[in-house]
Amino acid sequence: MPGTSPLLLLQVIKKETFRAVIDLIIFECLVATCIIMVGLFVSGEWEHLTTEMEGYKLGKVSYIMNLTWTAVSWQLFSIGSTGLICDASSLFSNAISVVGLPIVPILAVFFFHDKMSGVKAIAMVLAIWGFASYVYQHYLDDSRSKNSAGHVERCNVS
């Protein structure tokens, strides 16, 4: 849902309530889950799930906890980004999403001892650069509007 405009949301759900937004997120995720489940069973990959769970280094409980908390965090992200779209703008929601991208590889390096490759480093630099550009453009727009408002006030006073 990041990138969706509030006008499009209103055209689809016809109401501007928190419950309508939550319903939209739930139904979107439900459809995605059904499509993924069909693909899982059609491809035959479901037969390898127990082997994958048993081969997980930290154990079966950690495997299930990892999947569960990943799903919960994605749902919270969906609700938060949709809330940002409705309250601020889709551009701001995307900017906040982009600034969060470098956090995941950094945490993976510290907690999981993952290697920091050149591709990860470049992606992190680009994400930070994109967010900094967004903030700087906002600063420029704000100072231009203050300058033009100050100019108008001076003209009216004289």
Score class of each variant (00 low, 15 high):
Val72Gly: 00
Asp142Ile: 09
Met116Asn: 03
Cys86Lys: 04
Asn156Gly: 09
Pro6Met: 09
Pro105Thr: 08
Phe41Leu: 12
Phe92Gly: 00
Ala20Trp: 00
Phe131Thr: 07
Ala108Glu: 06
Ile36Gly: 05
Ala123Tyr: 02
Ile96Glu: 04
Ser62Tyr: 08
His48Lys: 15
Val98Asn: 03
Lys15Phe: 00
Leu30Gln: 07
Leu58Ala: 11
Phe112Cys: 08
Thr70Pro: 05
Tyr56Pro: 04
Ile13Cys: 03
Asp114Met: 13
Ile25Arg: 01
Thr50Ile: 13
Ser90Ala: 14
Val31Gln: 03
Gly100Met: 11
Cys34Ile: 15
Ser43Cys: 06
Ile26Leu: 06
Val98Ser: 04
Val61Lys: 10
Leu76Ala: 12
Val152Asn: 10
Leu30Ile: 12
Trp46Ile: 13
Trp129Ala: 15
Glu28Gln: 06
Ala95Arg: 02
Phe27Tyr: 07
Val104Leu: 09
Asp23Tyr: 02
Asp141Cys: 08
Glu45Val: 05
Ser143Phe: 13
Arg154Gly: 09
Phe110Pro: 00
Thr51Asp: 08
Phe18Val: 01
Gln11Asn: 14
Ile26Lys: 03
Ile96Pro: 01
Pro2Val: 12
Leu24Asp: 01
Cys29Ala: 11
Ser90Pro: 02
Leu140Ile: 09
Gln75Asn: 07
Phe131Arg: 01
Val42Phe: 07
Met124Arg: 10
Ser133Arg: 15
Asn94Glu: 12
Tyr134Lys: 02
